[in-house]
């Protein structure tokens, strides 16, 4: 079996935001990464690392000032609104906050049907598909006629996931999809994402600040620090045996639920700190 070609290729990506009074802020300074079909690439970093910005750049929601993004061999760095509509069938998103990512005044059914209707589906087919989608994310069929506020955070995130898979995309940008959720809900939503990936073959760009979460779902992991990639590799290696000092610090900082192990990590981290020094 030959190695499959990349589905998404990001090369030397640069993103610069314009601030007030013409001040510029470069959020991404030349980042390259690739995702193969059906693969999950985890993108880890702390606040200000630019991890969310990369996802938004792929979606056309961030100002790209350098480099290129290729999807399925096609340059999508700068595409028109019309072409973007075509891309919507292939690239979708699940955002972090399930409270603001669903329009509070639309029913769940309307929210899920919207992307289908835009692509020219008939109302009948679209709403039939909505029933199917609700089933796939394990929500009851009567959810369709209810408003988002009638659901818990975890259930809303299931709705957001259903909207993302509605068009059968080949790539889903998951922007901290479980960070706002409780521990037990978090695990169930991650299981759902894995289940859907196995049945639909979609690739994920999975953005998170949590090494544990990223390890659980990713095949490969990329670590970002202030707009630069510091480490990239197989999930097991990066999340359990990191090589770069920053990743090691990240690893040692995340507390684990084992008293002895946590004590060891704390000592290790303090050693790193005195060695690395400021």
């Amino acid at each position: 079996m030959t190695a499959p070609a990349s589905l998404l290729k990001v090369e030397d990506l640069e993103v610069t935001y314009k601030g007030r009074g013409g001040r510029k802020f470069q959020a991404i300074n030349g980042v390259s990464l690739a995702i193969r079909p059906g693969e999950t690439v985890g993108l880890v970093g702390e606040s200000g690392s630019g991890k969310t910005t990369i996802g938004r750049a792929v979606l056309g929601l961030a100002p790209i000032t350098g480099g290129r993004i290729e999807f399925d061999g096609r340059d999508i760095t700068h595409v028109s609104t019309r072409e973007r509509r075509g891309l919507a069938r292939d690239i979708q998103v699940v955002f972090q906050d399930p409270y603001t990512s669903l329009n509070p005044s639309m029913t769940v059914g309307d929210i899920l049907a919207e992307p289908l209707l835009i692509q020219g589906w008939t109302r009948r087919d679209a709403y039939a598909r909505v029933r199917d989608l609700l089933d796939r994310v394990h929500l009851p069929a009567d959810a369709s006629s209810r408003l988002p506020r009638e659901f818990s955070g975890g259930q809303r995130q299931r709705v957001a996931i259903a909207r993302a898979v509605a068009l059968g995309p080949r790539l889903i940008i998951c922007d901290e999809p479980v960070s706002a959720l409780d521990l037990t809900t978090q695990a169930r939503v991650l299981e759902l994402l894995i289940e859907l990936q196995e049945s639909t073959g979609a690739a994920y760009l999975f953005v998170s600040h949590d090494l544990g979460v990223v390890r659980h779902i990713s095949h490969r992991v990329t670590v970002l620090y202030r707009g630069d990639i510091v480490e990239q590799g197989e999930a097991d290696q990066v999340t359990a045996r990191p090589e770069h000092p920053y990743t090691q610090r990240l690893f040692m900082s995340a507390p684990v639920s084992d008293v002895a192990e946590q004590k060891a990590r704390r000592r290790h981290r303090r050693q790193l700190a005195t060695r690395g020094d400021r």
């Binding site: 659980h216 779902i217 095949h219």
Partner: peptide
């Protein structure tokens, strides 16, 4: 429900 850095990781087996 805790996810930490122990446990299995997923293996990529090519496009599904």
């Amino acid at each position: 429900s805790m996810l930490d850095d122990s446990g299995d990781v997923r293996v990529y087996t090519g496009p599904t």
